[in-house]
Structure formats: C-alpha cells, structure tokens
Amino acid sequence: MSEVRELPLVEAIKEAYRQEMERDESVFMVGQDIAGGIFPHTKGLVEQFGTDRIVDTPLAELGMYGTAFGAAMEGFRPIVDFMFAGFFLNAASPILAQTAQFRFIHGSQMSLPMVITGACGAGMRLGNEHAMLVHNMIAQVPGIKVCMPSTPYDAKGMMIAAIRDDNPVAFIWHLGTMMDRGPVPEEPYVVPLGVADVKREGSDVTLVANGFQYKNAGIVADRLAGEISVEIIDPRSFSPLDIDTILKSLEKTGRLVVVDESWESRSTASEIAAQVVDRGFDLLDAPIRRVTIPNMPLPGGHMEPYVAPNPDAIEAAVRDVCR
C-alpha cells in the first residue's frame, strides 16, 4: 500500500480550488490580490486559469462580494475570498440580509451556490479585526452554511463540498492551522458539511474543539493521558450543527467541555450547551464548561495567548468537569 501524501492545509485548499475549477467551468474566484497570492492558497492559480477566473478587484468589499453574489444568480459558482474573514463585515449587509435570506424570502425559487472564505484567528498578533472569528455572526442567520476545517484532509474535502453545495457556504480557516501538514489524497473527495467527526476516542470527557483549538485540545488530551481519557469531537460545521454526534459521545462520557475561539456570549459553545441541555440533560454528570474569549475585544500585543482559549484554560475546564 502506497503512503498517502502529506500536504499543508493551505495547499489542500488550493488543490480543491484547482480540481473543482478544472471539473466545472462555472467555478471562479474573486478577491483582492489572489492572482499574486497573498496567502499560498491561491498562488499560481492565475497561470492555469487566467484572469477571467482568478479575478482581482479594487479594495472594495461590496463590489468584490457583489461580483460573486450577482454571478451566482446567473448560474456561476463563485468563490469569494475576503483574505481575512473579518473583512466580510465590510459586506455584511449583502451576506447576512440578502444572500442568506434571499432564497427563502423569494419563495425558494433561486439558489446561490457560492463559497465565502477567509482566514482568521488569534495567535499571530494581527489585531482584533484580522484575528476575529466571524463564524458565529454568520451562523446566526439561517440560509447560509458555516464551517471551519481542522486538518488538511478535512480542508480539501470540505472545500470541495462547499463548492458543490447549492447553498451559500462560509468556509473559514484558521491562520494557526495554515502550514499544518497531514495526509491528503490526490483524487477529489467530499467531506460532507454538517457532519461532526470523532477525532480521538476517549471515555471520561467529551471535548469539542476545531480549527486551531483542535490542536490545543490534542495537547490537553496528551497531557492528561493515563489520568483522564478525553474524547475529541471536531464539529467541522457550525451551521448546520451536528449535535447528534456530541450527544452520542455524552452517552459514554457524561461530561462536556466546548472550546470556541469566540466570545463567550452567544457563541457556538453557548449553542452547543443549550442544545445539549435541551436534548441530553439526563446524559450529563457535571455542568457544561465553555472555554472561549472572555466578553472583551481581543487585545493585540502580547495578550492573545492568555486571553484566547489555550491549553491551560482547556485543561482547567476538563479537570473541573471531571472532579
């Protein structure tokens, strides 16, 4: 058996772009400086697909987003790259008020097959706007799917799923995972959206985490090995959210810690906690703990490592529910 090749996460995303653009003429990318490749995930694509399909725009997010939004109505399958996911806020109105809601409001006649993407995450000291995770803001609105990969394998499969999905999908990726290497099959494949993944089996506590925080969860599970058996679940998608996989894990562990690199209030962690209490109250042997950013803007400088979720905070929460 030949070994599966390893790729960094950004290269896995690029392979998804390349293979889907080769497969389907209607797929194209629009963004700022994507031809040059500000991140490695678009570098070199313009040589293969030309400027008709790797479209650079002025620094104007409404026009840039509109290129994708309008083209999707006309049968294209755009990928709109905000560079940093937080910049989506410059086009929040058409994304949240129109793209997400248009299909339903207009009688479910139209579909808007498009991917909205961007990088984000604490840890690079880029300031709050570049770091901001916007998954919860988007996932609040029905009509748009939201996901974030934790591994190169998931990144490629979920990006292909997102491009083929007939709904708008926000695909956010964390800068802290950008150069992570992992096995990625060469052929195209799909990792379905809305399906969580049990990434590590355990029996004492269910630890939900993804993106960069999935790595922190792994550090904590290693630290506690032999003492507390940690089951790590990667939700992969925030909307739709696969709560069944979490409930199933709780049948075994009875204890839940949710890590979410977002503000404590109204986060995906809060949503998971609410749904678990709603549907799985009897499964719980301890209160649910959330590990999040406290309700403050994310400070830059040297404060990110202890304000954002980190292994020490996660370990403390796990120990707390396992007392």
Binding site: G66, T67, G70, A71, M73, E74, F76
Partner: peptide
C-alpha cells in the same frame, strides 16, 4: 430588498456574468 441601494452590490456580478 428593504435596503435602498442594495442592488449596487449584485449588479457587479450581473454585469460580470
């Protein structure tokens, strides 16, 4: 849409398409 001027966004894509 209820937002006056909303169409200045998708019009770019309509034109592009």
């Amino acid at each position: 849409s209820g937002f006056i001027g909303w169409h200045f966004c998708p019009v770019v894509g309509w034109g592009w398409a």
